[in-house]
Computed example of a mutant assay.
Amino acid sequence: MIEKIRILRETALCKIKEAAGSAEIEELRVKLLGKKGELTEMLKELKNMAIDERKLLGQEANALKNELSESLEIKFKELSANDVERSLSNSSSFDISLPGTQFKVGSLHPVTIVQKEIERIFTGMGFNIVDGPEAEEEFYNFEALNIPKHHPARDMQDTYWLENGSLLRTHTSPCQVRAMQKYGAPLKIIAPGRCFRNESTDASHENTFFQLEGMMIDKNISIANLIYVMKLLLSEVFNRDVEIRLRPGFFPFVEPGFELDLNCMICGGKGCPTCKHSGWVELLPCGMVHPNVLRAGGIDPEEYTGFAFGLGLTRLAMMKYGINDIRVLNSGDLRMMEQFSIR
């Protein structure tokens, strides 16, 4: 038996040394150490021997097993490295001396950059960020916002209706009512999101755009609070004082309602297609929350007041980065997106 172990050792180590590939090493491992390998079969014979002889031969066989396993592992690593080197040297399209491939890293969409910045500003003022469904119920999109069926205000928002009776939300205002129902008063929330309207597109209008709804409800909230928060927001976004104007505007869910316009930053107020040659961009409809909307949200208008606003994230991004056509933002043109390095 000792002689068999000696012969197997010499033969196996010789074959391992002469192996020409990693596949051949794997075959040797199975042949020598596998379940039916030569050394395994030899170990099975030990049960028929005397205890003293079994102990001695067992030690020799286990020592050989460890030696062969180590030799096989070393040779396998050596041959695997050679296989890789040969593969690289045989490839006509690969030059190991060249620098590595430079992969392009994407950047955030300008609307996303503006949204994150505004979220940072409002959370710093104690506002919470909420969300709502894009496929909205008619109640939340219209009725709860003081826009009953057949109300003329619905004509302002030509809508995409779905077969199940819901609709693609035309604004993020439904989040107001959902937040009031869930959290009650006092309340400070913003709700950024995507909106949809079936309207003709031009340099300042798209059928898919982004808004950010905001609301603050507490006791003794006034228009002065609204103006202060809006000016603080815009000065933070543009990193300077901005010129705004507040003019009366009708929105069923606020009373009184206002249009907050921003002096066009594309043309400096001189007039261009983006501002419809008026020098001003309609940016921020706002006003004091209508009592009917407070009631729909489960809040007593005799005890609480509040203001609400709807900020056009898409238009704000246009003003901030000097983009003169809103349609560019949904074009998927990577050449435009590559200009924004904030990631």
Rank of each mutant, 00 (worst) to 15 (best):
Y160V: 01
L88S: 05
V177N: 03
T314A: 15
F340D: 08
N48W: 09
G322T: 02
S166Q: 15
G269R: 00
V229C: 14
K182L: 15
P152D: 06
L39G: 05
V254N: 04
I221T: 05
G214Y: 04
S107F: 11
L316G: 04
R194P: 06
A296Y: 01
G298W: 01
P248D: 05
G306T: 01
L232G: 15
E67P: 05
R327D: 09
I16T: 03
L226F: 04
F340Y: 14
E136I: 00
S89E: 15
F210V: 00
L68I: 13
I326R: 02
S22A: 14
L233T: 10
V177T: 11
L145E: 08
H151E: 09
A50H: 11
F307P: 07
G249K: 08
R29T: 00
S166M: 13
P133F: 09
G268K: 00
G100I: 01
I299C: 07
I189L: 11
K47W: 02
Q181S: 10
S80D: 11
E73M: 12
Q176K: 09
L162M: 14
V289F: 03
L284M: 14
D241L: 08
E85M: 12
N141R: 05
I217Q: 07
K35A: 13
D333T: 01
K4P: 00
T172M: 14
G193M: 08
S69F: 11
Y183S: 13
M125W: 15
E137V: 09
F103N: 07
R240F: 07
N330K: 12
S22M: 01
M318F: 08
D83A: 14
A203G: 03
E213C: 12
A20Q: 15
F94M: 10
I113D: 08
K270P: 06
N82H: 12
S278A: 05
S278I: 00
Y183E: 12
A224D: 11
C14M: 12
E259I: 00
E137H: 14
T314P: 10
L260A: 12
G287K: 01
P133W: 10
D95N: 15
P192G: 09
A153P: 07
I25C: 06
N239H: 15
I16N: 09
E119Q: 14
E3K: 10
Q102F: 10
E41G: 15
F250R: 07
F139D: 03
N220T: 02
P301D: 04
S222Y: 11
F127L: 10
I323T: 09
F210T: 01
L32F: 10
